[in-house]
Amino acid sequence: MAEQRRFLSAAGVPIALRRRQHSASCRELAVRGPRLQLRSLSAVTSAVWLAAYGLFALSENSMVLSAAIFITLIGLIIYLHFVKIDQESLLVIGSLGIQVTSSYASGKESTTFIEMAQVKDVVINEAIHMQKVIYYLCILLQDPEDPQGVSEVVPLFQFCFHGNNLSTGRVDSSRKEELQATIGLLDRSVQKLSRDPGAEEDSSSIK
């Protein structure tokens, strides 16, 4: 049983959210970003080539042209393999944990697993990112030494929602106290996504 809904990401591009219920305690959420546009690809390629021809006309060195070929090819490979994420999915298994998978355009997949015992909470937080103020969904990880503490903040669906990477935040000890104060507030305020997978559908409330 799967259903699909369309939304706009924070950057204004269309994205699709697919939900799949595998069993009562297991459910999968996948967000698919837009495909690589032929238009933007050809725009970038022609820009590089025009620049190369300009340089060639000035320097009359054919090395420039071969360098341009290599730059376009290697750039494309790096972009497809390390930058462009096609789909991000979240597999939530009730008693076990959360598996976060991102699939790159080249087919490469990277997977992280978060054990349920480590998950302290799932919240929507508000932050200033670059020149924007955004809402983002994140998992708070339990600090093993301190039952009240948070050791790490893992943002979810970052590429599809925001178009770039919010790096995973490691919380050092000097900031811990302040973060806890914030989380105290969050607990009272941000709509809490309860830990049972039944309520996970709130994640779609981000536009």
């Binding site: 932050a127 103020v133 000097s174 302040e178 914030t182 507030l185 305020s189």
Partner: peptide, 17 residues
């Protein structure tokens, strides 16, 4: 370290840019 968005009493929202 006080950056980002904070809330004070009665929901007063403070942006620390």
């Amino acid at each position: 370290h006080r950056k980002g968005v904070r809330y004070l009493s009665s929901g007063l929202k403070v942006y620390y840019l």
